Amino acid sequence: METRNIKFKKDKILDCGVQLLMEKGYHSSGLNEILGAAKIPKGSFYYYFDSKEQFAVEVIWHYIEPFITRLATELSVHQNDGLQALKSYYAGLINEVESTNFKGGCLLGNLIGEIGDTSEACRKALLDAISRYTNLQQEALLRGQNHGSVRTDRSAKSMADLLSNSWQGALLRMKVEQSIEPLNAVFKDLLDDYFKA
């Protein structure tokens, strides 16, 4: 019971961290803001995290997990056709982004731009999160190739990398354009066209 309670409290702090880092970034989020957002005393913060940098590392892991779970769920629903799993997954993301008025974008992309080359611990956490996410997309595309819905003259890995890179760029454009059109373009150009067999 105690372990579950500790995990619940830590997850609550990490949820606040995702929100705060998404809205303000790493450098503009001071420890007092983190403590205030999570409604915890300083001692509690240091019970869970050694430093602000370690907090950011765990926020990155915490942030990516629902996306991994969600994509894995789509893969289990569309077991054979990985392309359909990706289309269903990305259509859901586009709908959610539109409903939030284009706020936030992707925490990974935001942090890559802000601290990707200044914090080694965060750089490694970002690389790990991106790798896990891209590997799952690669698995989806490989399944699509085996199913016959995805082209086979390109490797599943190169297409998964292209999808991740294009999506991150589209999220940045979405924020400045205040439009889902860049996301729709990635969906249409890659999932509805370039990747198809």
Rank of each mutant, 00 (worst) to 15 (best):
E2S: 09
E2D: 11
I6V: 15
K7H: 01
K9C: 07
K10V: 08
K10I: 06
D11V: 03
K12F: 15
G17R: 04
L21W: 01
L21E: 05
M22K: 09
M22H: 07
G30E: 00
G36F: 03
A37V: 02
I40Q: 03
P41L: 14
S44Q: 13
Y46A: 12
Y47N: 02
Y48K: 02
D50G: 15
K52S: 12
Q54D: 14
F55A: 11
V59S: 10
I60P: 09
W61L: 08
W61R: 08
Y63H: 12
E65H: 08
P66R: 02
R70G: 15
L71T: 06
Q79G: 06
Q79C: 06
Q79V: 06
N80H: 07
G82D: 06
L86T: 01
K87V: 10
Y89V: 10
G92K: 15
G92T: 15
N95H: 15
E96N: 12
E96Y: 14
V97Q: 06
S99V: 03
T100F: 09
T100C: 07
N101H: 00
F102V: 02
K103R: 03
C106S: 15
L107W: 14
L108F: 11
L108P: 11
N110E: 12
L111E: 06
G116W: 05
G116K: 06
D117K: 08
T118N: 05
T118E: 12
S119W: 09
E120W: 02
A121L: 09
C122G: 04
K124A: 08
K124C: 05
L127Q: 07
D128P: 09
I130Q: 02
Y133G: 02
N135R: 05
L136N: 04
Q137C: 00
Q138F: 01
A140Q: 06
R143G: 13
Q145F: 04
N146V: 03
H147R: 11
G148K: 00
R154D: 04
S155L: 04
K157S: 05
K157V: 05
M159I: 08
N165L: 13
Q168F: 14
G169M: 14
G169Y: 11
L171V: 13
L171I: 15
L172M: 14
K175A: 14
Q178C: 03
S179T: 03
P182S: 15
N184P: 00
V186W: 10
K188M: 07
D189S: 11
D189K: 02
K196G: 09
K196E: 05
